[in-house]
C-alpha cells in the first residue's frame, strides 16, 4: 500500500461521497457542502498527480489555487443560499424548480 494508492483511494472515496450528496440532498446547504467535498477530491487528485509525475511543486501550487477559488465559490453559494432562504423561506432544492420545460 503505497502513499499513491492511499491517495487514489482517498480521491475516489471523496468523489463518491460528494456525488452521492449532490444527487440525494434536498437541502441547499448540504448541496454546497457536497460541492466542497468534491473540490477536496480534486485538490487531493492534483497532489497525487503531482507526486506521481515528479512535478510536486506544480501539483501543490495548482492545489493551493484551487482551494482559494473554491472558497470563493462556496462563499457565493452560501450568499445565494441566504437570499433563497430570505426570499422563498425554504432551502429545499426540490421546491426550487419554478423554471422548467
Amino acid at each position: 500500500m503505497t502513499l499513491l494508492n492511499i491517495g487514489l483511494i482517498g480521491v475516489l472515496g471523496l468523489l463518491g461521497v460528494g456525488f452521492y450528496g449532490l444527487l440525494t440532498s434536498r437541502n441547499l446547504i448540504k448541496v454546497i457542502i457536497a460541492l466542497q467535498i468534491l473540490a477536496k477530491a480534486a485538490v487531493l487528485a492534483l497532489l497525487v498527480a503531482g507526486n506521481a509525475s515528479g512535478q510536486i511543486g506544480l501539483g501543490q501550487s495548482v492545489a493551493i489555487t484551487v482551494i482559494v477559488a473554491d472558497t470563493i465559490v462556496a462563499v457565493i453559494g452560501m450568499a445565494l443560499a441566504i437570499q433563497v432562504r430570505r426570499q422563498m423561506h425554504t432551502l429545499d432544492v426540490v421546491e426550487l424548480a419554478r423554471l422548467r420545460g
Partner: peptide, 23 residues
C-alpha cells in the same frame, strides 16, 4: 435566485471534472 443557484452548482461540478482531467 433559482437560476443563479442551479448555474453555480452545475458549473462548479463541471469545473471539478475539469480539475480531475488536469490531474
Amino acid at each position: 435566485l433559482e437560476a443563479g443557484v442551479k448555474y453555480l452548482v452545475q458549473s462548479a461540478v463541471g469545473s471539478i471534472l475539469v480539475l480531475l482531467g488536469i490531474g
